[in-house]
Design a protein around this nucleic acid. Structure first.
Length: 780
DNA sequence: CAGTGAGCGAGCTTCCGCTTGACTT
């Protein structure tokens, strides 16, 4: 029997620590929080100074039971949960549940899982810091109050489905996306003309090479033309050359947020995919903990990184550094994300290979030398006017960390920086340069791009909203609730002008570019837009981008013992509750109504608004004698941007296409998208076919094909019993009514020969042994 | 599977932050 029981949060950690501590210690994990507020009455007794009631969630009962037993058998319990607010609270909950005295139970912390760190921790135990615990309780209670008071307001004021939600984090995340969308919609591109002159000069070997020099941006076609005119017959001379050294420093090692960003930019992973793969790497002992905001590398890690750089790249490439977290909300309970073994630069054929290599490179690069550059700027004078041109070149003198790793940049940061910096041939002052051609190209200003999952995480982190463990879940929540959609957007063609000066002659041409195309970006839905407007109007405080930062300061005061947690909650709750009551009492239902125009045929108003089943357009009013006409918006359309013409187009469905086999063929858009209806059967339209323009000739093959496919899928039908034996993607199966039943493996080969008795037997057996319940509750 | 569109109100939903599961219908 072990004398000592040491409890950590993560089972993977427990395994490692047990090895380090040896036989005297039994190391167990509690798998994160073991208690939570009960859901009834919010789990908070508001009248009694916000007294919380905690329960042990069902899925934690097993681990709590085990810890209780082990705790009873041990003479000493060590609480080694993470060193942050949440970790401290977990330790306190453990005390409560295991019947330990928080004033005397040994509480230890370590930031890295190494022998010296853990030994040192065990030698310097403290006790649970109740101020920090109270800060966590305040955080928990505030989040519960905000979530459980706001969500029901939405249920009452929105005539839509019943699982809407609002919260301190998710609602602000949606707001970011909503506001970005509106900025983009309101954006008016301004055009200007970029001046580029193409010269040639000899390189070191005497070979002529081309290079580009830029002139001052011109604000209109007229001024651009005037400028080119003034250059006709000009002589171009190098007026001045400046050479400046420059350097680039490597980025810090990965945190959760930067890992998600880089995996998105470099590998195209969603944040949840990144986290799933990182979790695998962590569990197999390949990397350190993946939910972290810390930039620290342990002493031992630094040693092995240093050794690796020296061995692989040489001393010249080594430049050890400590990175400081700029983020105030960082709690730094763990290390940065790094490989556990720096000698392993790559791992074998697993799907997490690419992510691992990314982590390895980033970790190595963070301790490598700066890259050294030389930036050359040449000013070129024009004999025929006062303006000058500048040519810039950049030469890498020493690659440093760039040998291993180059951080990608977000679109957002690339915007104004279109200049491509290449090499310049050697130039001398007073050297005359022959002009090949000069171009004035029309360029348009662009709005900020829509958020990707990862750039949203970056923004949230900057605002201090959310934690490493919640970025991925938050992004999936706002999509699940239907506030936000991830999708592509096709660009639109746009003409732009190019003026060209060549051989002393000025010409002009029109070219075309694609603009506004987006891939895998976050778009707000109409639901997201109207809910955001509603919440902003009535709960401006909570929706403020700096709300979290402000209350974090107060949590810090609670943690420092300067502020009582229930006083803090009380100060927040009273005005908040008034807003809630006032909103329930007085606010109108959320409609998001927008008038589009007048329908000529009926003379009635055409409006777009939120309906019971989503965004729609409507001709006429419910108070009219005649019932209004309704049509659902397409999922790429929005109440805010739909035009009158687009709205009228929607009323053209359902369409009668004509007759086929003596039955009418109609086309419409239904619950599951566009479809053709014929003889009480329905046929989905593929993406290529547009219900507004499809013809009878195009519709008939769809009907015929579908019938054929259905026949091919069918192995056997027992008409009377309404049982079918069908061919599915996982092999043959049995269908009775709406339910499917698996055919046992040994009978799959001969599925065609099954008789009614056998089929019934399979169904009976399947019913008697239902598949095991999945862990997660399934809800539509 | 392919409807609906207002409001009443059974009984339900909902938050954020810790941590891993066992699911192939």
């Amino acid at each position: 029997m072990a004398k000592n029981l040491l409890i950590v949060e993560s089972p993977a950690k427990a395994k490692t620590i047990e090895k380090i501590l040896g036989d005297d210690f039994e190391v167990k994990s509690c798998y994160g929080h073991i208690r939570d507020l009960k859901k009834e009455e919010m789990g908070i007794d508001i009248k009694n100074n916000y007294q919380p009631t905690y329960i042990i969630p069902e899925d934690k009962e097993k681990v709590v039971k085990e810890l209780k037993q082990l705790s009873k058998k041990s003479s000493q319990v060590w609480l080694a949960t993470d060193e942050d607010r949440e970790g401290e609270a977990i330790s306190w909950h453990l005390c409560e549940v295991l019947g330990l005295d928080p004033a005397t139970t040994k509480r230890i912390i370590f930031h890295e899982i190494t022998k010296p760190a853990i030994r040192a921790a065990v030698e310097n135990p403290r006790t649970v810091d109740m101020n920090l615990v109270n800060a966590q309780q305040a955080r928990r209670i505030l989040d519960r109050v905000v979530g459980f008071e706001l969500s029901p307001v939405l249920w009452r004021k929105m005539s839509m489905k019943n699982n809407l939600s609002a919260g301190r984090v998710q609602s602000v995340a949606v707001r970011l996306i909503a506001e970005r969308e509106r900025e983009i919609n309101a954006f008016k591109p301004a055009s200007s003309y970029r001046i580029e002159a193409l010269f040639t000069a000899k390189d070191i070997s005497g070979k002529p090479v081309g290079f580009t020099a830029e002139g001052k941006k011109q604000s209109s076609a007229e001024s651009a033309e005037k400028f080119l005119q003034s250059c006709i017959g000009g002589v171009y001379t190098v007026a001045d050359i400046q050479v400046k050294p420059g350097k680039k420093s490597p980025p810090a090692p990965f945190t959760t947020s930067t890992l998600q960003q880089e995996a998105s930019r470099k590998l195209g992973y969603s944040v949840s995919r990144t986290m799933v793969l990182a979790q695998k790497l962590y569990e197999s002992g390949r990397i350190t903990y993946m939910r972290t905001d810390s930039l620290n590398l342990s002493e031992t890690a630094m040693e092995s990184i240093t050794a690796q750089i020296n061995a692989q790249y040489g001393k010249k490439y080594l430049q050890p550094r400590k990175f400081k977290n700029k983020n105030e909300s960082a709690q730094e309970a763990h290390e940065a994300i790094r490989p556990t073994d720096m000698q392993t630069a790559s791992i074998e054929d697993s799907d997490s290979k690419r992510l691992y290599e990314l982590i390895w490179k980033r970790t190595i690069a963070s301790q490598m030398s700066d890259a050294e550059l030389e930036r050359t700027t040449a000013r070129i004078s024009i004999s025929t006017n006062k303006e000058e041109l500048t040519a810039q070149g950049e030469v890498l003198k020493f690659d440093g960390f760039l040998k291993v790793y180059m951080e990608d940049r977000d679109e957002e940061d690339l915007m104004e920086d279109e200049r491509q910096e290449g090499m310049l041939p050697p130039l001398t002052v007073n050297q005359e340069l022959p002009l090949k051609e000069m171009k004035a190209t029309e360029r348009f200003s662009r709005p900020l791009p829509r958020y990707t999952e990862a750039s949203l995480v970056k923004k949230l982190e900057e605002l201090g909203i959310g934690r490493p463990s919640t970025y991925a879940p938050t992004i999936s929540t706002i999509q699940k609730r239907g506030y936000v959609e991830k999708r592509d957007k096709e660009g639109v063609k746009r003409d732009f002008q190019i003026l060209r000066l060549k051989n002393g002659k000025l010409t002009s041409e029109t070219a075309q570019e694609n603009t506004g195309a987006e891939k895998s970006k976050l778009f707000p839905t109409d639901l997201g837009l109207v809910v955001t407007d509603f919440l902003k109007q009535h709960f401006n405080d909570v929706m403020d981008y700096h709300f979290t930062a402000r209350i974090e300061q107060e949590f810090d005061e609670v943690a420092a013992g300067k502020l009582k947690w229930n006083k803090m909650i009380d100060d927040f709750y009273n005005p908040f509750k008034k807003d809630v009551e006032n909103t329930i009492e007085n606010a109108e239902r959320i409609k998001g109504e927008r008038e589009l125009g007048i329908d000529e045929a009926s003379g009635k108003k055409v409006i777009a608004r939120m309906g019971r089943y989503g965004p729609m357009v409507q001709i006429g009013d419910v108070s009219d004698e005649e019932k209004p006409r309704f049509a659902k918006l397409k999922n790429t359309q929005s109440i805010e941007t739909i035009s009158f013409e687009e709205a009228m187009e929607l009323f053209k469905l359902p369409r009668q296409l004509g007759g086929f086999e003596d039955k009418e063929v109609t086309v419409n858009i239904g619950r599951f998208g566009p479809y053709i209806a014929h003889d009480k059967n329905f046929y989905s339209l593929g993406k290529e076919l547009d219900p507004y323009s499809i013809t009878l000739e195009e519709a008939i093959p769809i009907i015929v094909e579908k019938r054929k496919a259905k026949a091919e899928r069918t192995i056997k039908i027992f008409e009377k019993e309404k049982i079918q034996v069908l061919r599915g993607p996982y092999g043959p199966y049995i269908k009775q009514g709406l339910r499917n039943y698996k055919i046992p493996k040994e009978q799959q080969e001969t599925a065609a020969e099954l008789d009614l008795e056998e089929v019934k037997k399979i169904i009976e057996e399947a019913k008697a042994n239902p598949p095991k319940k999945s862990f997660r509750k399934k809800k539509a």
